[in-house]
Structure formats: C-alpha cells, structure tokens
C-alpha cells in the first residue's frame, strides 16, 4: 500500500531551482499493476526514485505500508529498500563476474539471511523466472532477456511489498520484451505482487491494469486498462491467463 500526498521535489542547480515534481497525489493498493507514463522530463524518474526510497521528497508525505518514509535517514531507507522494494532496471544492473545465483543472493546477504536459506531461496526465485538451468552462469554468458530474468528474480527474493520496474523492456527486442512482461503479469496475478512500471512506451503501459500519466511534474491523467495487452501478449503469456 503506497500513499503519496502532495509530494514535491525541487533540485537546485546552482542558483536555478528545478521543480521536478509539483505536488503528486497517488495511491497504489496492494496487488495493483500500474504504469507511470510520461515523456522524458516529465518527472517520472524522479517519482520512481522517491517511490523506491532512493531519494526523498522535498515536501509532502509518502507512506509505504503505513510507514512515513520522508523523515528516515539513509540507513533506514536502505533497510526499507531491502525488505519492501524490488528494483528492475532497464540495463539490468547485475554484478559482472558474479553468477546468477550470487547476484540473486545479494539482497538476502544484506537482510542477514543464513547461507543455506539464501541458496534455496535464490534457486527457487531463478526457477520461477525460468532460469533453472542457468544458476551458475555469469551475466556475460546470458542473453539480455535472461539477464533481465535474473534481475527480476533478485527483486523477488526478499518478498517485497512492491516491485519497481524502470523501462524493463527498453533494451530488449519485442518478442523478449513480451516474455518479460508476461513474467510480471504472472507475478501480479498468481502471487498478488504489486508492480509499478515506469515507461514511455504506450505498448508496454497497455499491458498493466492502470496507467498514470505524468507531465511537467504533475499527474495529468489516469485510466484503467480494460483489457491488458490486448490479445496477442495475453495469449502468448500463458494459457491460464485471462480466463
């Protein structure tokens, strides 16, 4: 459950003040699948940084599962990111020279989970994104789609309240992109995970269930998606969906 109440963000670049966000009000319920859309410069990256607790609002309130995040210090924020937020980035952001398994284990290392529990959880997460046979491959031995699956597995392992995906298909071809999106759809439908996409791509946004449009740091529109992804992705995603 996420609540943003008139959140603003002001950057000062020298003497000039840049208003990246000008009072955002937004509620995201548990189990939602939502896309934040907007052209570049609309403030969607800033919003994502704030939602992801990487950054703090200049004013306004941000409640994450009832906890007010705005007053927290850096280390408390790190703890919140660790337990409540999963990140998926456009460029995957995996550690090079580190196996898929070890990459997925990282959030659990900082959560203080024992080595044996980490191993089983990490391999389960990798299996759930279809990488059972790739546990010990390093990022440079994996395709883009596979790397993004590792990143998704990493975002899942600590059972976060919310997964934030920043242009998750931006570096992938259309077909692989659809596969990745269908993984998110499964996580949302089958495991009830709350997922937030940040994207400028209308096709990707159309696969979520609610779209929030941002322009110049303000919410300018909001719509429900009646039929996510139309037909083709839904059918390619899996047989059990949409029934």
């Amino acid at each position: 459950m996420i609540e943003l109440d008139s959140v603003t963000k002001v950057y000062s670049m020298g003497s000039v003040e840049v208003h990246a966000l000008r009072g955002i009000n937004l509620q995201i319920e548990p189990g939602e699948f939502i896309a934040i859309m907007g052209p570049s410069g609309s403030g969607k990256s800033t919003l994502m940084n704030i939602l992801g607790c990487l950054d703090q609002p200049s004013s306004g309130r941000y409640l994450l599962d009832g906890i007010s995040v705005a007053e927290m210090n850096d280390d408390d924020l790190a703890g919140v990111r660790n337990r409540k937020i999963g990140f998926v980035f456009q460029n995957y952001n995996l550690l090079a020279r580190t196996s898929a398994l070890d990459n997925v284990e990282i959030p659990m290392v900082y959560a203080g989970i024992s080595t044996s529990a980490r191993l089983s959880k990490a391999s389960n997460a990798l299996e759930s994104v279809g990488l059972a046979g790739r546990l010990h491959h390093k990022p440079n031995q994996l395709s883009g789609g596979e790397q993004q699956r590792v990143a998704i597995a990493r975002s899942l392992v600590n059972d976060p309240s919310i997964i934030l995906a920043d242009e998750p298909t931006g570096n992938l071809d259309t077909k692989t992109g659809r596969e990745i999106i269908s993984i998110f759809q499964h996580l949302n439908r089958d495991r009830g995970m709350t997922i937030v996409f940040v994207t400028h791509d209308p096709e990707v946004a159309a696969c979520t269930r609610r779209i929030v449009r941002l322009r110049d740091g303000e919410v300018v529109g909001e719509e429900r998606v009646a039929n996510p992804c139309g037909n083709d992705i839904a059918s390619s995603a899996s047989a059990e969906s949409q029934s």
């Binding site: 992801g52 990487l54 850096d74 280390d75 790190a78 703890g79 990111r81 660790n82 337990r83 990140f87 952001n93 995996l94 550690l95 990282i106 959030p107 900082y110 959560a111 990493r154 600590n158």
Partner: peptide, 16 residues
C-alpha cells in the same frame, strides 16, 4: 561505482 549503486539499491547500508 555502479556495483556500489546496485548494492545500495538492494539494501546495503553505509556500514556494509
């Protein structure tokens, strides 16, 4: 730097 960013994003504290 990037590795540090990734580690921080997934929950590494300053101390870690």
């Amino acid at each position: 730097t990037r590795e540090i960013g990734i580690r921080k994003a997934v929950g590494a504290k300053r101390r870690d």
